[in-house]
């Protein structure tokens, strides 16, 4: 009798734990329409002319996107919709630099990537300010980070909607990113 009720209690606990596990993350589907873009003060390199490194001040918004599976899979979709793959291919690079290696010309933190997409960069990268809503720029940047294994495989995109030459980001082996030559250490990390 006692062991029976103990079993029932354990089953109830297990069920509660299972149900709790259903809540993976909150999806913020309706961001504020009037929210202005965040002003991140990022540095492109840790090199500095003076004795102290460049000052970096970030809003911390990036951590939310890097931990969110929804945001990264949205970013993956927009990556194809907005023709990022026209130049960067599926991360391997084409007329634009590859994104799946460990070499970041303009910094590899999510704030750096957001800035690169928003402002554009010399020699071909156009500015998407005003064209892509801020929310989506952050989502694309989080996806770009996931290409080189820089976000957790728990949240990296799960499924390829179209034909890709590689498995989905969450199924790529947890090896370090492809070596891309000289490494500029990410300043914000």
């Amino acid at each position: 009798m006692c062991s029976g009720s103990l079993k029932a209690l354990m089953a109830a606990c297990a069920m509660g734990a299972l149900l709790g596990a259903c809540q993976r993350e909150e999806r913020d589907q309706r961001p504020s329409p009037v929210a202005s873009e965040t002003r991140e003060q990022v540095a492109l390199t840790t090199n500095s002319a003076g004795p102290s490194p460049p000052e970096i001040r970030v809003s911390g918004k990036g951590a939310k996107y890097e931990a969110s599976a929804y945001d990264q899979s949205q970013g993956k979709k927009y990556y194809a919709w907005f023709n990022c793959n026209g130049c960067h291919s599926n991360g391997g690079g084409g007329s634009g630099p590859p994104l799946m290696d460990d070499r970041w010309i303009y910094g590899g933190s999510i704030e750096n990537i957001v800035q690169t997409i928003r402002e554009g960069r010399p020699n071909g990268m156009p500015s998407f300010r005003g064209k892509i809503p801020d929310e989506q720029i952050w989502q694309i940047a989080a996806y770009v980070r996931s290409m080189s294994g820089n976000t957790s495989s728990d949240s990296a995109p799960q499924r390829n909607d179209s034909m890709h030459p590689h498995p989905s980001e969450s199924r790529t082996p947890p090896s370090p990113p492809v070596n891309g030559g000289t490494v500029a250490p990410s300043p914000s990390r």
């Binding site: 309706r30 961001p31 329409p33 809503p133 929310e135 989506q136």
Partner: peptide, 17 residues
Amino acid sequence: IVDPHGVKPGVDMPLTK
């Protein structure tokens, strides 16, 4: 245009500034 998510929550059309 001003609020697609008010009409169809979850739709791909974003809120545009």
